[in-house]
Design a protein around this nucleic acid. Sequence first.
DNA 1: ATGAAAGCGCTAACAG
DNA 2: CTGTTAGCGCTTTCAT
Lengths: 343, 343
Amino acid sequence: MHKPYKRATIIDVAQSAGVSKSTVTRVLEGKSYVSESARARVLNAIKEMGYERNSLAASMRSGRSGLLAIVIPDISNPFWAEVTRGAQDRAISEGYSLLVFSSDWDTQKEAAHLQAIRQARVDGAIINPVADNFDAHFFSALPMVFIGSSAERFPQTSSVGSDIHQGIMLGLDTLQIKGHGLPAFILGPASRLARTRFLRVVEEYCQQHDIDPTQAIIEDGDYTVEGGQRAMKRLLTREKSTNAHLAVFAANDLMALGAMMASREAGLCCGKNVSVMGFDGIPAGAFSLPGLTTIQKPSRQIGRCAMESLVNEIAGRTECRHIHLPCELIDRGSVADLRTTDQ
Amino acid sequence: MHKPYKRATIIDVAQSAGVSKSTVTRVLEGKSYVSESARARVLNAIKEMGYERNSLAASMRSGRSGLLAIVIPDISNPFWAEVTRGAQDRAISEGYSLLVFSSDWDTQKEAAHLQAIRQARVDGAIINPVADNFDAHFFSALPMVFIGSSAERFPQTSSVGSDIHQGIMLGLDTLQIKGHGLPAFILGPASRLARTRFLRVVEEYCQQHDIDPTQAIIEDGDYTVEGGQRAMKRLLTREKSTNAHLAVFAANDLMALGAMMASREAGLCCGKNVSVMGFDGIPAGAFSLPGLTTIQKPSRQIGRCAMESLVNEIAGRTECRHIHLPCELIDRGSVADLRTTDQ
DNA sequence: ATGAAAGCGCTAACAG
DNA sequence: CTGTTAGCGCTTTCAT
């Protein structure tokens, strides 16, 4: 076994500085007033002995561990990595350390992580719940903030997510401003809730602009590059007769990248003869030629904001709130500007 | 403040089950023998009271916190996210929880994180050290494993990294097998240690194959897409006179992607008229057309293996070791196979 | 196979 | 401003 060598304790420091344990604690906390001479002696002793406070012991007594946790589907997914990064930065700046767990969208793993979290006596947790029967009530005593679109399922727990509605509207408006009509859509499989939500917004847009929503051309993808590629091929075949400029709005960036590939294969030039708009803002979108114009979800802000809410909730400063952060347009050239072309 | 409501303790369980604290502990640990009836009663009490072991208290007494830490430059960088994921999986399966810290290549942040790590009394840490004066000695009592190319700087501490030498050789061999001679290179700036290391391997390869190393054509990039793009343009201009097939080996994937863009702009078809080989294995390489053929660093394995070493070291099963994990070829089509073309 | 007692290192009361 | 006292909840050691 690795020798757990004896580290100096608060008692050693107190003795060496000629004060009591309590005084050392006071210096450590920096809250209460301690005489200058005592403080100096303590600080000196700490330095000399290389004393490091045992936060385990401190936690036990104070009831606060200084630990926070985040449970996300997969840290190796760029979106969640960004979220985690945002949360991490904020946690550190608030004096907390962050435990990170990947659930892989697996209910069992999630449950196991939650158990570990409770046993570690973390002070709070940010969670992207996968289980539908997530027992938020059971957790009522643990300060929690949900991320993702959980507000609907768990109205009684705080949540932070991106404003999908605003994002889709932004995409549609951008296309319109650039001279496109209602675009064709490449959406996820019909089974997914996200698809329904997407369509609801499209319908709303149609109503606002006096467009017949049933006109909308929709192809199914599966959120992969290949799926987007196939969907785009179908769209291109279908629209071959028309001479109109084809504009496509994909429900995520991977499918959008697939659509760009398909148009290139068809001899079309994206951003000139065809237009593709993505949704997500993944880094890979910057490396295509042209770059993918997309609606970026505010991933890092989501993490930061969730952590902010969590810390506030721990401190009792705020009540349960649901926050939707706005998406942003990243224009990299995959959507043609028909205004200039038309002139 | 959030009410830190009273959770059941081991004493409550003991009372309810009609046994002593010690017996409850024994059941919890599952190591010592406990009579069936006692075990059943304890288990039952635990379930009924919703008891959850306070690992803080357990840690304090036992000296093991069940916490491990990883310090990496940036969790939002896909490479490090993969490393972290590997470490995480292994940590979880060993019964540990993982604290994650991003240092941003900043010595001060690193120092702050290390302090937090020590104070949290983690049982061990995986670290990608940024500070050259990293005080590995000071940490001698904390089980540690370094990741990245730290073996040279810290021979006394275990480390896990990718086998750059083998990776570059693999790239060169692959190009040769596909009928290319010594490729042109797009490397990082001369200031970087990585460039020197890369060149050393190229020279070795040249010697093995009776090639004059001074023949090698080298362009400078800066590890960015744009840098690679510019470097490739220069290469294409330079080689325009020659009719030979141009093959390029870039020192990272971003520059390789830039090179692919440049060749497309020059009207060339990558994987047919030109060949580009990358190095890293970033996800974005899969989305270009054709996909980027590259040498993939074993990111996830690095994390997994580092965690394995760490756990072994904590358990006293192994001594300090330096491990270099092999890179792998991902063939996605950006390197032409001249053998078939030639026939 | 089980229980009793003694702390782990610290902080939160309370006195002074 | 400072010291004393009493634990936090658990594991460990030593009895039994």
